[in-house]
Nucleic acid binder design. Sequence first.
RNA 1: GGCGCGGUGGCAGAGUGGUUAUGCAGCGGACUGCAACUCCGUGUACGCCGGUUCGAUUCCGACCCGCGCCUCCA
Length: 460
Amino acid sequence: MSLTLYNTRLRRKEVFQPLNPERVTMYVCGPTVYNFIHIGNARPAVVFDTLYRVLKTLYPEVVYARNITDIDDKIMKAAKDNNESIADVAERFTQAYLEDMVSLNTLSPDMTPKATENLEPMQSMIATLIERGHAYEAEGHVLFAVQSMPDYGKLSNRSLEDMLDGARVEVAPYKKYAGDFVLWKPSAEDEPGWDSPWGYGRPGWHLECSAMIKAHLGDRIDIHGGGRDLIFPHHENERAQSCCSQHGEGEFVQYWMHNGYLNIDGEKMSKSLGNFRTVRDLLGQYKGEVLRFALLSAQYRSELDFSRELLAQAKASLDSLYTSLKEVDGVVAEAPQNLSDAPFYQALLDDLNTPIAIAELHQLAKALNKAADEEKPRLKGLLLKAGELMGFLQESPEQWFKQGVGEQGISAEEVEALIAERVQAKKDRNFARADEIRESLKAQGVVLEDSREGTSWRRE
RNA sequence: GGCGCGGUGGCAGAGUGGUUAUGCAGCGGACUGCAACUCCGUGUACGCCGGUUCGAUUCCGACCCGCGCCUCCA
């Protein structure tokens, strides 16, 4: 079976056929670095990281780019509010973002282009658009003329008329047409900017992605991903800029992919509504892998309600998977020779059906629990591989169960000492003392488990 | 107003024109000094009303409800 992906532009699933099977290209919209990211922002990072892992099993070279937007009015505002330079704000939150990405077990993209390092390609794209009659200058601005593009609106499936009907912003007076959007805007003396043929200024938001894709990946790429809220206007406008400035004909992006929202109490999580939880904050209470598991517990196009219960269930599921692995700690895993028949792989190939793939993880774990010794290396290898494709199960069970989150509480040495005391108590048939120790540890978040091999422990 | 998404058992969440995943929680049992873990067993749910059909949660139509986008947003 081959990879199928849901293409937003066509509103249906398609078999994925790369432009060049030797080199697959994927671009995902990264953060604007003016704040810590919230867990909703983490969803595309985790989803497309999973896709990246799957693509790597299919193609010899996958080039994954995820940008950093480090020039933007919101960053300028944050810098002003904190009395800090724009570069410092951007640098600080870029680092925080990269740390959060590591916590969520995402692989590093092959490139992380920054807007401020790509002004030249942006300006050259503007020049081309003006030359070709798709853009015009007005009062220090350069605007894209949406009416110059016959199929503008095709990605988001809307007509110009319909869009303007519901418009809720005032139309700037210098626009020839209300739907035109900014490619370049003037900066005041004390604002950041760059010299350009159209005066001192800075790029419009949509431009950087178009320009960086062209500069680093080429005129045409295979996959472009991001959150659903980027479909319009961001990706529609990117498509307009890129299609109208590229060499030759054809779609600039072959497969547009958009993840659904993360909700809080049924409402979209967003910075403007203020109902968000930052990844940073959540990492104080949950391991990154738990957050990742929660994010992948629904198919990426569905909405997902983010709650304490969701995280508790994610944690419980991972505990159970790691328990299976713990039981075969001494078994050497046998790497699967061929994934193509594995149900978890089939599920991932079907537009990243992670809930099914997770169900298969549980099936593998259950099979492993019951397996005869000679079957264990193969099953363990499959389970680890399935986990790896989704970014799970890469810690040792020991680490998973004994490393706490945030406040460490009782030390491992103290736990071991109490276990030793309890073993003696049990030997003396002093069960009252044995139970007392277990209860006391339980109250401190440590669970003891007796077996023939002895007593093991884990943090809850 | 335009465009779009969704409503599945206590919760989360797939899927399918008929044998109705999976996990968590619950219940019964095995194991255990007692537990925990694990294992075995256990749950006839698909918003409402019509239609098509031998048969619909799945297809079609209407309706109700929720959510989103229409130039800040992942």
